[in-house]
Design a protein around this nucleic acid. Sequence first.
DNA 1: ATTAATATTGAAAATCATTATCAATAAGGA
DNA 2: TCCTTATTGATAATGATTTTCAATATTAAT
Lengths: 156, 156
Amino acid sequence: MPMRDGTGPPWWHGRFSGCGYRMTVPRQAILDILSKTSEHLSAEDVYRAVHKSYTNVGLTTVYRTLELLVHMGLVFKFDFGDGRARYELSEGPKGARHHHHLICTGCGRVVDYTDFIDEEVELLNQTEKGLSKKYNFKITNHLIQFYGLCDGCTKK
Amino acid sequence: MPMRDGTGPPWWHGRFSGCGYRMTVPRQAILDILSKTSEHLSAEDVYRAVHKSYTNVGLTTVYRTLELLVHMGLVFKFDFGDGRARYELSEGPKGARHHHHLICTGCGRVVDYTDFIDEEVELLNQTEKGLSKKYNFKITNHLIQFYGLCDGCTKK
DNA sequence: ATTAATATTGAAAATCATTATCAATAAGGA
DNA sequence: TCCTTATTGATAATGATTTTCAATATTAAT
């Protein structure tokens, strides 16, 4: 059973009941998988991982749950250009896992980086403030990705 | 026939022959459409637009051409989360059309903004340099998008 | 605890954007 | 103009994601 810090019930339980959603076994299992990996899992990946311990959880539920989690802001959904969505547990800009992606357009490899995050966050905060006001948006999120060719692909 | 400035042949003709590609009617038509719009066209959108003047150009060719243009760096491909890719003629960071996107997660509306681009470009250049060196990537591109709720959707 | 109301689930079928096939055609250099 | 080869378009295939709907599990109330 996934704990935030080992001292209480799963910290996200409240996020569900607070919104009228129910905390179920499949949902816990999916959050559990996401919280234990540092990879960029596709829905299928999550399904396979969950399926090991909970054979009866279906792919449909995985899709639905992931969508719900994205909607709740607990999960980020990424498109790295390989035709399937990738999901990661989200952390606010100050979270330990906060990072951005560097994507090789040659082989599709994805590198997580945390360098320059502080400077980026600084600038992004300002930008968000400015955009919020100017366009009357309530900004909740941002996406930053760099594209290029990795070492191996440059030489081919 | 699309011109860069009205004084010569289409400026991108050379980009094609230089790479062993051929400049064809469908390709010109597609570039023409893209250069004349400020919208975020899907492949289907481009197809419909091209189809008006060139009834015989097929959807397959549109897909293929768009992919080629993306590969050549002449076009950007975006994912705004509505299940289909969107394409825009690309301009370098200093180009007049260079902008980023602000996406409403409520209704899907996409706002182009050019505010703060200078500061962003400044930071991004530094980040790119740092990342290039650290991860041995040859960085060619970046993507920045902000997500939130637009005025209308906040009130619902 | 038991029940009632309803959110959630899973299997299968449906959707739909994008790709692969392949014979016919068109571009560009010789 | 001819030849080589890239390109095209109609059709079929692919494959990730959604929809459907009856069965089940969860929560709040009794």
